[in-house]
Design a protein around this nucleic acid. Structure first.
Lengths: 131, 131
DNA sequence: GTAGTCCTTCCAGTAACTGGAAGCTCAAGG
DNA sequence: CCTTGAGCTTCCAGTTACTGGAAGGACTAC
């Protein structure tokens, strides 16, 4: 398989796949013409990475998860620990975004948004009322 | 005011303040010794930026907001439009994170997390069941 | 043979800082 | 006057995970 086909099948851009090789996540063989020659196993790995990335795992987490996946002596506790820690980060991020959302939507609601210059949003940024 | 005091009062690290100068968000004067000599106005700007950043606005958004703030001919509609667009991005981000959270917490719940190698999390990453 | 597509590598840029090194300035103490 | 320590300066490099683009080789079809 050439990179184009792998890209289609894994739903990852060729650039990203080359990047993943560069950082050592995959090691595809090479054909005589210098093209990368992907095996099914490479595709499988890439799909794995793609799904882990879609769940928000960092590249280094993906590397670890891949190692664990390939290690038949792994303990599922290791995986679960990673997942839980990641889950917690997601929760923190959500909380932070929700807090921003709450403040900002209040401000947006209070701004008439017409041709006049006075604007509660800017006023709040300039000096927020002490809550 | 030297940078240290401004840092304390604005609650921004000195490094960040220097960076903001480098990208042209502020233009503090200099004392004879080469130290940055901040005015109250600089501090005010930095606090403004800090609050906008805390609401998740990008640096370029902050630059624009600062311009609008200083432009007495601004139309509040411009500000509101920026805020609304940013709000929408926040909503998208939250939705994405919640989707991740949902999938991941299901997986975490299904993993016994002990010393044995079998792990539904890895299995799902390897090949997710067609929903 | 040539047009067009696919592949290669390499370099640079993105966002918003952050860490660290080398070196100057300043205030206080002896 | 000298030293010590904190605070300031600049500059360079690194972070995350790609992405864009240039220059050029390979392959396919006509």
């Amino acid at each position: 398989m050439n990179i184009g086909e792998v890209a289609k099948r894994s739903n990852l851009p060729p650039k990203t796949i080359r990047y993943y090789e560069e950082i050592g996540l995959i090691q595809p063989l090479r054909s005589g013409n210098g093209y990368r020659a992907f095996q099914e196993a490479d595709l499988h790995k890439l799909a794995f990475i793609g799904r882990a990335r879609a769940l928000g795992f960092s590249i280094e987490d993906c590397r670890m998860l891949l190692h664990l996946y390939e290690d038949s002596n792994r303990e599922s506790a290791q995986v679960k620990k990673m997942a839980r820690s990641h889950l917690q980060q997601i929760e923190e991020k959500i909380a932070q975004l929700q807090s921003m959302h709450s403040t900002l939507s209040t401000l947006v609601a209070s701004c008439h948004g017409d041709g006049r210059p006075d604007c509660p949003i800017l006023e709040d940024l300039a000096e927020p009322p002490m809550a």
